[in-house]
Design a protein around this nucleic acid. Structure first.
Length: 535
RNA sequence: GCCCCCGUAGCUUAAUGGAUAAAGCCGCGGACUUCUAAGCCGUUGAUGGGGGUUCGAUUCCCUCCGGGGGCACCA
């Protein structure tokens, strides 16, 4: 990609000037007066070079000019010492063609890597709520991007269904009418249809958890459109197989456990955690933690180099203990594995007033209701446009009102328009105008569209490295905008003929836009009906 | 009390330490005999307070204020 070429060229020139081991960036510029790309190299390296930033910038420009790169139109020094680089229209057009043809097939920036990404993993005690949505759509989009970037990706959903767990036992009590935990109208209807009369009390919880899980699985697969490769049952893989027992033996062998108050503790505090943690309770049952340890240890044993977890903010306290275990068991470091993403919770608002979203208080919005009401594309976009760390506020009334104005429609509409142009061209003769470079030079919006197309591999490989999935919708919107402007200025259909270079540009754009939407799991409609005017 | 996260325009959100802080929604004002008006053009409007590091801070550090979450032999 062009950016990479520029980076290499600058690095080369810096080295020839005797400046090595430097840190600088080359960034695409939104402001056209800043060129297509700009670098801060002269600013970051000035001290090392013992020169003023502008002085170094001048040397840089001179050296780059001498290189005579064919794709460089001109170089300018601006502000405190930025070097703005303007590319030739030919270079932009050639690159756009290449990007659309090659890069939409996939990249290789994380090629060969085996990645396991575990997300959602909602407890089998009830329905998914909107808080689960963040992790769900983030995880799925990240998985899509990593796959696209060449990695081997396994999407995994962990089910806390161990018969030994307290939550399954509590669920059982509720199933038998002896408890209130997890009780919702939906759960009650499941209980009603299950006829627990003949069940041994200790099996009710597990049976009910299976029923809930079955429902959640269908919901995630069909309505959310997230295809997990592995539905990993704690009870089946970790408890029943004795894997947890083997983990315990391993930990004892490593001498990192001790007994206190009748329970068995793991010395996580010696490895960076705030305190030690119980792995076997005083009643002899195993805590959830031992399963977590076994589960992750097993992931590395399955050969994943990268193990990613997406957790809600209410689990942030588990990060330290998990990484402590990593040190004990020798999981990959740098960065410490598993790589854990914390999604901030979603606060509820109603009529402008903030409410606490508490599972106990029951004022949750179910993810399913949201999807039914707004449609999966709107919901996906809504969640994936926010950075994980933002504490988003959610007002269902507002969401309803705004769904019709969701930016996702703007982007999809642009795609539908491109499809429409293709349909309109059918049967027409080419005007034979092969003037894409001229077009780019004379029409700013055409040049801007080429530039937006060229950004695709940079954006996606950036996301593949930084995991900032929310940059995808930003890019999709930018591309759609660039297209809308191009559409305003340049006609593809001209009377009885069509403009072939303009058509090719539209097709390239369509290809990139569809690929980007695919990475977010959002559909690319070929037609969109006119919006019905509100009465 | 301890730990994590957040505070940007009226609202919802952007901004690897960079140039004039960016979008959408809302508001106001335009253009229609041309490939879909869910579009296009113009416009009002913001970094919670105070210090510090830096050539440069929304970003990093300290502190105060405000908000969310977590601190079980539950998961």
């Amino acid at each position: 990609m062009i950016k990479h070429t520029l980076e290499q060229s600058i690095k080369e020139v810096l080295e020839e000037l005797g400046i090595t081991g430097t840190v600088f960036t080359v960034e695409r510029q939104a402001e056209s007066s800043h060129g297509d790309y700009a670098t801060n190299a002269a600013l970051t390296c000035a001290k090392l070079a013992e020169m003023s930033p502008r002085g170094l910038a001048e040397k840089l420009v001179t050296a780059l000019t001498e290189k005579n790169f064919p794709f460089v139109e001109k170089l300018e020094i601006a502000g405190p010492g930025f070097v703005n680089m303007f590319l030739t229209a030919e270079a932009l057009a050639d690159e756009a063609k290449r990007v659309s043809k090659e890069d939409t097939e996939g990249l290789s920036v994380r090629g060969g890597e085996k990645v396991n990404i575990e997300f959602v993993s909602a407890n089998p005690t009830g329905d998914l709520h909107i808080g689960h949505g963040r992790g769900a759509f983030f995880g799925d989009a990240l998985a899509r991007v990593l796959l696209f970037a060449g990695a081997g990706v396994t999407r995994e959903y962990y089910i806390n269904d161990s018969r030994e767990s307290n939550q399954v036992k509590e669920l059982g009590k509720t199933g038998l009418g002896q408890g209130e935990q997890y009780k919702t109208p939906h759960l009650e209807s499941m209980i009603a249809e299950m006829e627990f009369a003949g069940f041994a009390p200790e099996n009710v919880g597990f049976a009910l958890a299976e029923r809930v899980q079955e429902y959640n699985r269908a919901f995630v697969t069909e309505k959310l459109g997230i295809r997990f490769d592995e539905w990993y049952s704690e009870d089946e893989h970790l408890r029943a197989t004795g894997a947890n027992d083997r983990t315990l033996a391993l930990l004892k062998e490593k001498d990192v456990t001790y007994e206190k108050d009748g329970a068995l503790w793991l010395k996580t505090s010696e490895y960076g955690d705030d305190e030690d943690r119980v792995v076997v309770r005083s009643d002899g049952t195993k805590s959830y933690f031992i399963s977590d340890i076994t589960y992750h240890h097993e992931k590395f044993a399955r050969g994943f180099q990268t193990v990613i977890d997406v957790w809600g903010a209410d689990h942030h306290g588990h990060v330290k203990r998990m990484h402590a275990v990593g040190k004990i068991l020798g999981w990959p470091e740098n960065p410490p594995q598993p790589i854990i993403f914390i999604t901030q919770l979603v606060a509820l608002k109603e009529g402008g007033e903030r409410k606490k979203m508490s599972k106990r208080a029951g004022n949750v919005i179910l993810l399913e209701d949201l999807v039914d009401e707004l449609g999966i594309d709107v919901v996906r976009w809504f969640f994936s446009e926010k950075a994980l760390g933002s504490h988003m506020e959610f007002d269902l009334g507002l969401a309803r009102e705004r769904s019709a104005k969701n930016p996702v429609f703007y982007v999809q509409y642009a795609h539908a328009r491109m499809c429409s142009i293709e349909r309109n061209v059918e049967g027409l003769a080419s005007s034979g105008r092969n003037d894409i470079a001229v077009l780019a030079e004379t029409t700013p919006s055409a040049r801007a569209l080429l530039s937006a197309i060229n950004a695709f591999p940079e954006v996606v490989s950036g996301v593949a490295h930084t995991h900032d999935v929310h940059k995808l919708p930003v890019y999709a919107y930018e591309l759609a905008t660039a297209f809308s402007h191009f559409y305003r200025d340049v006609r593809v259909v001209e009377g009885e003929t069509y403009h072939p270079d303009a058509l090719a540009l539209v097709q390239s754009t369509k290809n990139i836009l569809r690929t980007t939407l695919d990475l977010m799991g959002i559909s690319s409609p070929e037609k969109m009906e006119r919006e019905v005017e509100a009465a």
